[in-house]
Amino acid sequence: MAFLTYIEAISKGMWEEMERDSSVFLLGEDIGEFGGAFKATQGFLQHFGEDRVIDTVLAESAILGASVGAALAGMKPVAEMQFSDFVTCGFNQLVNNAATTHYRWNIPVPMVVRLPSGAGIHGGPFHSRNPEAWFFHQPGLKIVVPSTPYDAKGLIKAAIRDPNPVLYFEHKRLYRHVKGEVPDDDYVVEIGKADVKREGTDISVITYGGTTHQTLEAAELLRQENDMSVEVLDLRSLVPLDKDAILSSVRKTGKVLIVHEDNLTGGIGAEVAALIAEFAFQNLDAPIKRLAALDTPTPYSPTSEEFFLPNKEKIVNALKELARY
């Protein structure tokens, strides 16, 4: 057992999979000599060599398209988008080529796209996005969003072994701010399984990625100050969505707050809310509540960004409101 940061856990997972399977290779902008913009692949080039750790040109469409082609030829590419925002340039490769190949032809496209995402680092409009909802709408892609080092390692390994194209969203703010126990052994976290990060009986919070930690802090604060029992369900995978875990938590508590860092409208929360309204309406003691980023681009100004994003205080207030209902 090691005590690792979130980014170290991602690196460890990739390292182990590359040791295990020679068809796994990494490609992306500045991932080799530079070690990656966030250093997720530091030391990989020296160990695995330039055939398997490939510094690409700055061309997201070519990176993702070549990954699809390499997967068709029997390889397992792990492509890094330097920032998840940049995936826009390769959109067609994912939603048309990667996502529909098995549907059309029954052949797998085993590829992983790593997408460093999220705000709170003052990155401004083009370096702070949480673009998971764009892909959530596209059948054929799997989406995972780990929040802890344990899940980060287990999910990157599961993603690499999955025969489908998997988008792996990793929150930049968590990279070095979150640490945790990570087993040294070869474990995977099953894609499609949510995780109750905190048991509770009064209210459920359904969240994922970066806001999981703010939610856990809010839940602890409310226990201490208000004796509230908040359950925190971390989705971990968005596609497939763990509908059973969502519904069983809501059925237990009867009140639900959905939190995510992406913009509110058309976000993952909208689908989760619809699911609850459709299948657990009878169990609800209060209207479903959502908390997300404002429906604006991400502002650079640190004070504006704080106003834009969900945070612990906003979650606490939303939970208090729900408790009063």
């Binding site: 055939d51 990954s67 082609g69 390499a70 390889m75 590419p77 490769q93 080529n97």
Partner: peptide
């Protein structure tokens, strides 16, 4: 395969070429 988005399949060819060379 055939591909219905004009030009969208061109990078896939680089991918299989890379894959066969690697293998």
């Amino acid at each position: 395969g055939g591909y219905g988005i004009v030009g969208g399949h061109v990078p896939l060819a680089a991918g299989t070429a890379f894959g066969t060379k690697y293998l």
